[in-house]
Design a protein around this nucleic acid. Structure first.
Lengths: 359, 359
DNA sequence: TTTTAGCACTCCGCTACCTTGAGTGCTAAA
DNA sequence: TTTAGCACTCAAGGTAGCGGAGTGCTAAAA
């Protein structure tokens, strides 16, 4: 089932031409595109063969060929050359990351937007917490007689706070006691273990104290839940419309709705942090709405067991090489920021050398 | 320039039919819709008059009439009857608000999504801080020898935190001193006043201490900046495609891009908190991309000088009454949540038979 | 055996044309 | 002032014809 060198070149030419022009590619076009010193008739024969083998498709007789998902897959696995980011590109990404620099939380929220702008495809970003995430510590700050701030920190170093107002007064020492209770009773517990422990405490503690405990513990549970549920942030959904395959509303709408739906299901994030991007082509997607589209995603390490995932969704006709390169670069930048505790990268994280490329 | 009673009825019939069916309305249809005991010919004459006066428009000769922005304006100001939310609707909104209940911060972020789902139009949500917002207090929590959490709270009771990691160790007492410095030097300052004060401190303080101060103060400035800049959260942009006026890509795309653009400029939020909704029809909008669409928004009070704004964007052909009622209701719910310090409303905030006031 | 040129064939996309029907404005009568 | 009648207009939808790109096949050339 091995393809001859020439056929591979033809397949590659078809894909790259189609990626650029979004139009079926004819034998003549291939002859011009790839400098194979054979006539279009020869290429025609080879293309017929490639179609029979399932790498190419024909929208209709007398149209050119377009790559099939299988064709894209072969391309991604074997034929694709690494795309080198140009100096301008890396500089642009660096600047964006630097200017958008805020608390890491926000960076991740905004990573999607950055990627969407960068790739002109809709993007998504999410963070994945380890399954057994727990609260590491509670801190309580009295700010008025009847109001305090609860600050909780998970064992993955995520910090969240919430302001509580009560209808009665509270002393500093009461608050300290409450803090001690929380830190001894409710740290190191996973989400599911909160309920039983809370019930146990309900028996010992006074009614008043219990109410406070419940309040703060509930908040802690919400934090854990949010992290475990890993909500997906999407950005640049409107970018879809810029690409010809989504010009017809019937094509665009389902995908847009799918992406708008806050939780489009736990992605099968196979990609290893820091590793190569994960490319899922057309029908390889599980979600029905993605069957005609491709997903490219990069995973990165946030430290403390937390992982981040950013990716884009687009037509199967994507410049996988370029998108991959950019995603990887942004992912590296984010990991860098996380590792540095918030300092933006002042130089390209990966240290790449540059090659001329068409943008 | 006063219209006869019959002409008003005709105008209203045209608008309500058009809102429902999205198709130009003919004289015959009006005759059926509104039970005026006159023939279509009579209505035809009146409609011609209404067109001459600028309340109706004709897409082309031999089509029915559609309302002009001026017509909608008259309708909204005088003809529209208050829409009563049904029991099911209020119950549904209540449930959503209750189930989405989290820290107020998140609620506001999600308010847009709730509204988008509720109205089937794209929605936006933002909060507006008073101009002269300041930091009320800093709290620093040591969590490891070389890491601490900074918690800042504004005078509008917004609380934000950030984790700092250092490359050297820090003692509890050092941190306390730092906290005192911050709380004496940098509370009560507006964004612009940070710089000079920081410069002043730079002269007195030791290099080491200054670095720390700068770190935390910068974070405080970021918080203030975020609140003042009031970023707009949008949701449900894909909802646009569900409406016939955005079926053609040329119409939909500019608006979608506009809405995707994180900051579509400071809205002229004329609406008073708790007051009636603000309705901006078609060309009344300043933004070019909105000239063919309408915006309905409701403002609400978040306490401490903070205000929230939620709204939807849709075709000029909107059911203004219904949308207004729903927005007002959600806005009231949010104000309620804010006022109650985070407790979800267990009963409709306004009473079940609430009549929404719309001027 | 592989490559090439030639040629008939297919089918999409475009334009031009026609038909249909809804809705109008106008006129003259009630 | 209202109504009925009628000619007129124009968008939408359907059909026919064509031009062109690209194919598969065949037979000759390398």
């Amino acid at each position: 089932m091995d393809l001859s060198e020439r056929k591979k070149k033809i397949l590659r030419a078809v894909i790259e031409s189609y990626v650029q022009n979004a139009e079926p590619v004819g034998s003549k076009a291939v002859a011009d595109w790839a400098r194979l010193d054979v006539s279009s008739a020869t290429i025609r024969n080879d293309m017929a063969d490639l179609e029979e083998k399932g790498y190419l498709e024909q929208p209709h007789t007398s149209a050119g060929r377009i790559p099939s998902p299988k064709g894209y897959r072969l391309y991604v696995n074997e034929l694709m050359e690494d795309y080198k980011l140009s100096m301008q590109e890396t500089e642009r990404i660096n600047q964006t990351l630097r200017s958008k620099m805020k608390a890491l939380d926000r960076v991740i929220d905004e990573a999607g937007q950055i990627v969407a702008k960068l790739t002109r495809y809709p993007a998504f970003a999410l963070t994945a917490a380890p399954e057994r995430i727990t609260i590491r510590r509670f801190d309580l700050l009295l700010i008025e007689q009847n109001a305090f701030i609860a600050v909780v920190m998970t064992d993955t170093n995520v910090v969240r706070n919430k302001l509580f107002r009560l209808d009665r007064d509270l002393s500093e020492s009461q608050l300290q006691m409450l803090g001690t209770l929380l830190n001894t009773g409710f740290t190191g517990l996973t989400l599911g273990e909160f309920g039983p422990e809370l019930a146990r405490v309900a028996q010992h503690a006074a009614q008043e104290a219990y109410e406070l405990i419940q309040l703060v513990v509930t908040f802690g549970a919400e934090v854990l839940e949010e992290l475990v549920k890993r909500p997906i942030h999407t950005a640049g959904i409107a970018n879809l419309l810029g690409h010809p395959e989504y010009q017809s509303l019937e094509k665009a709408q389902p995908l847009m709705s799918f992406l708008s739906d806050e939780d489009f299901g736990p992605f099968p994030a196979r990609a290893e942090p820091g590793g190569p991007t994960d490319i899922v082509i057309g029908p390889e997607n599980v979600a029905e709405a993605l069957k005609d589209s491709s997903v490219v995603m990069a995973s990165y390490d946030l430290g403390d067991g937390m992982r981040g995932l950013i990716g884009v969704v687009g037509p199967t006709r994507m410049d996988y090489a370029k998108i991959s390169a950019r995603l990887t670069y942004v992912a590296k930048g984010l990991a860098w920021i996380a590792g540095q505790g918030g300092l933006p990268p002042m130089a390209p994280p990966g240290g790449k050398d540059t090659k001329e490329e068409i943008s």
